[in-house]
Design a protein around this nucleic acid. Structure first.
Lengths: 216, 216, 216, 216
DNA sequence: TATGAATGAGACTTCATTCAT
DNA sequence: AATGAATGAAGTCTCATTCAT
């Protein structure tokens, strides 16, 4: 409606100008929050729109349907984070112990304690409703995450830091306290009076786990 | 499944039977399955009724509302299992190691691999929708389960089997691979080609965990 | 169920024995109250049954349907009262003025201030739903009532007490403050703080009306 | 009834039109008719919608619930008419007799013989279902109407036209033949073959009433 | 005769989606 | 590009009626 203003010089667009390119992201962000809070079926498109600062009709300009929006939320949000983890592992120079510890802490920092924690929670809740998306998530997120961790453990075995174990199983065991805490925070966060002490939980997990898998 | 009723004397079979005592249980069982499969909002009362072998109206003879049915599903199904675990711990004569191992295996046998696994999955998914029920579940199931396990670990510390650790944190860490596997089986069961090897997962968890927490 | 006890000597049956003959009347009485309070559509058969001290099924032993019950309520309840009024008029020996006054007061005593007031209220409310019953009511109650009053007025004209007026119109005008007060009491009874002063209302109506219609 | 919209330019007529301002009024009008015909409980929202030329969903764009619609019907429809009567009384210059007669005739012209007659009928029928609305109606319509008429009578007493009577009671008596005829027309209209002669009914009421209340 | 469990049609209401503006 | 009025399918819940007991 307003004539587009030339923005050659400034990377940040003026706040009063709504850019077409920003909309989808804003809608996806609003949808993530609401889908996580209420589940897919109980979330109203009108509420998503309101939270994104637009109206219902606008959502349909960018997404074909509620279902398409849900899939976009999952696909667009989580994959980049996995890639980040993989990059960390690849460039890491230290011991397997240190890398494992760092991956655990990074997971929490980037996912567990952020809004992204909603994605695993959401997939747990809605998996049966979206089989195709679930397959995607399982392959591109779950399995990839496990392989990442499995690679670290294998590194540790080869380096003599870790005992010889089934690396995929060990990887799942390294991740599961994180996964569970992530999902539990979403679900029971309001029931844990002072929050449960995550730091100690992570520390203890790392300590016990490394102790358990250590060569000697 | 239900034994066919003998009808030797009557030529026409009755259109329905009066089974006041059996109905609520059958309805709750049907509801559990569907709520787990589809979530609360996406489950239709008509489907619950059909699966329970009755009609919509009958469901309302026994439950005031869909919400009341949901609460009944959670409350009536899970609490007895916790009590069973507590009884096991109390009557157990062997070492803490053995008790911990047995509790882990029993959890899987009674919940993880049965339909009851749906309850934790359901609570994760619907916690925000039912705050009051969530509080109940958190107090009567989650916390009680953690305390049970914490008692075992404390026993092990006192007996010199385990290192001195924060018992509640250690308890959560002992449970979390179970919780996560339970929920994951519900969500991703169909994605794991031959199922993932649960036996090895449990064995390895017990081994690594006991190794990690052992005095020596 | 209990063997019938011989009651040769006592006219009053023992309270513990429910007699088949009493049932329909009890149900009709309960139905009248509830139909009046809530209207036909909003009245539940189950409530009628409960107030009558029986269960739903029993209502259907005596009445074919909810509609049949409604018709029974109207037909059985109101007609006898009209007959009473006609008898009064026929046997009355005094002046037309006195008879008119007495009919007005009797109407209030027998209908206006009793539960029977519900019948006119009910017919006003449900006339469109029961055209056939309405026709019956209009012919057997409304018109008959008007004719009764018209006869009185005619008597007064002939005796020289009243002016010459259209007797049916004058009859309706004599009745309408009664009808309206009857219906209004049902509807707005709870809104009139100390009740409105019916006695004065009746007195004034009689006075003004007789004054208005008087020869002189 | 609605003027057809010119469509010279478009080959296909639009499936619906956007008429935000007109809808509520049309829906209220349709609802009034149906509520009056069938009563609140027996009226289906779908029928209201159809008669208003919209679909069920549209009704809920403008009214929160069936109950809210009912209240709107009563509140929005009747109050303006009362105000009209009050204005008439205030600006009237002639005698009390003439004003009383005119008010009676106006009542019939504006309410008794129009669709608005349904409102009193409706309130009679549904008062018990909507206590709060009934209170509103009683205060803002019934009582206000009575006060209006009481003022006229008081004027007549002061001017020496009328005898000294309880003005509120006399007011109610002046109104009740109107109220009753209004409600009766709604209920029994179809039973009165050639209609009953309203003109004569009103004339006679005015004549008898004024005769009855006259000083001499 | 009496019960009340069971039925099933139908009501109100919600909300994803469409489309006139 | 954006809006939001309008739609209509679908879900929850109610209740008159039936019928096994």
């Amino acid at each position: 409606m307003a004539a587009p203003v030339s923005q050659a010089k400034h990377s940040a667009s003026p706040r009063w100008q709504r850019r077409k390119e920003a909309r989808p992201g804003e809608i996806v962000a609003a949808a993530l929050e609401l889908f996580v809070e209420r589940g897919f079926a109980a979330t109203k498109l009108a509420d998503v729109a309101r939270r994104a600062g637009v109206t219902k009709g606008t959502v349909y300009l960018y997404f074909d349907s509620k279902e398409a929006l849900f899939k976009a939320v999952v696909r667009e949000t989580i994959v980049p984070v996995i890639a980040q983890g993989e990059a960390l592992a690849q460039s890491f120079a230290g011991s397997a112990r240190e890398l494992l510890e760092q991956l655990v802490r990074e997971y929490w920092r980037l996912i567990g304690e952020t809004k992204l924690a909603g994605i695993p929670k959401l997939m747990m809740a809605e998996a049966a409703t979206f089989p195709e998306l679930t397959r995607f998530y399982y392959d591109e997120v779950v399995t990839r995450g496990h392989r990442l961790m499995a690679g670290v453990i294998e590194r540790g075995i080869k380096s003599g830091e870790f005992r010889s174990v089934d690396v995929m199983v060990a990887a799942k065991l390294a991740m599961s306290p994180l996964m569970h805490a992530t999902v539990a925070r979403m679900a029971f966060g309001s029931c844990m009076p002072e929050g449960f002490n995550v730091a100690k939980y992570l520390d203890t997990h790392i300590e016990l786990y490394l102790h358990g898998i250590a060569k000697h």
